[in-house]
Design a binder for these strands. Structure first.
Lengths: 135, 135, 135, 135
DNA sequence: GTGGTCTAGACCACA
DNA sequence: GTGGTCTAGACCACG
């Protein structure tokens, strides 16, 4: 669980946790059925409050990224439904770049690069896992 | 200056003002060197607080979309430098879709559709403006 | 704001608050654009903690029943989209009655009675409001 | 006794057991006087704790779906009395849909569809049972 | 041990 | 004043 929390950031701590776990899934560092640290454990590791982690995990569960169980804690389990406001959020973000005069091709290239990065990381993680099971 | 402020919205008023101006620029309704209403004018028109409008204009200036001048008020003037956290925000949003299993091609197609929509609006506004100057 | 909270109930306090507000909307006691008590106010009125009320309001906002604003507090505003798991929850509840041997007609009649009750209360509340504006 | 327990589910194990038995009764797969596996048998079959199964059976007995006997184990025996909070739970669920603006007719139609589904399953199971006794 | 809930008290951003 | 976040510490249900 690689997490880098910045206490000084304007982004809430629980949002930082949530975002990094989502990125971890996208990059294949976190795979379905993998267990995340317990709420208390993660809070202790980073010296933050239990409720802050709880709020992040709670949101991740509602968004369909993880499943919270009493005994085992949190496990990755993807519900493939995409949030309904995803397109609206994407629209605002793209408008910001387009208004700055960025060329459509350039914006698309940046998106492609990010996605390709996820894909390569995921492939790398998959082959690592495969090697691990083959040994 | 078409502005539609929804007092009932979950989005802060200053954020609504900022977002609509950004979308207006993206769609070509607002072009460089065009003057925006003064802070007190806009506040009076909508019956909202001066500070609210001030905050929106302030953010737009910091983001490089407008230039605030003492006498002339606010004018659109695009600073093509993108916000430094734009890529990070895009990264998080793309991760959300990719983590849910969406295909790269599908995500890219959605982005393309949104951007094409902006382009068409801008083209429509540009030709309207041309007709206007021809009269 | 008629709220009856039972501290001894097995149902969490925040869930009781959430459920009663939803029922209040169904019965027309709470109508769109009506303001709810502030989080602190409601917490003080019932001698419970601010965070408990906050959790209820937070859920209501996510479910599309209310809108939370910094200045004015919480206002009723219906997003007509129904929760996607609504049918699954209804299915479980109906199975419970059907397994007990309840006749389909009887179950349907109970549902009808409840819904008719909401409808009548709503109509009564509407006419009260009308009389109020006419006076 | 077809039981499919999902260790990954958000629902507690004992609740899954309870719900599936209730749905089994509703669908006619489980009929009065039919014996259920013993607590230790079912726990062994699924490799889960005795307490977990015990809790499910305990709840089913309190709800009036089964009868626990020392020697014979658990047998289906319907106590037609509905849980006293059934109507309250139904009320909340119906309020949710009605508050969102759903028409009474539409809500009723959905309930009817679900119940008709149960009825058809039960009829199918009954005829299967009849054929079985005829052999 | 886990997550789920509730309490108590604090600081900040918003308008 | 409002809601939003974070902290600290407690008890309970679950397995």
């Amino acid at each position: 669980m690689l997490l880098v929390l910045e206490i000084e950031s304007e982004k809430p701590l629980y949002q930082q946790i949530r975002d990094q776990i989502v990125e971890g899934i996208a990059a294949g560092r976190l795979v379905p059925n993998q267990t995340l640290p317990s709420i208390r454990q993660l809070a202790a590791d980073f010296g933050i409050n239990l409720h802050t982690v709880n709020k992040a995990y709670d949101q991740l569960e509602r968004e369909g990224f993880i499943l919270l169980r009493r005994k085992t804690g949190a496990v990755i389990q993807i519900n493939p439904r995409l949030a309904e406001d995803w397109e609206a959020r994407m629209r605002t973000l793209l408008a910001e770049a387009f208004a700055k005069g960025a060329a459509v091709e350039h914006i698309m290239q940046q998106c492609q690069n990010i996605l390709t990065g996820f894909q390569e990381q995921r492939n790398a993680n998959v082959s690592l896992t495969d090697e691990g099971t083959n040994q």
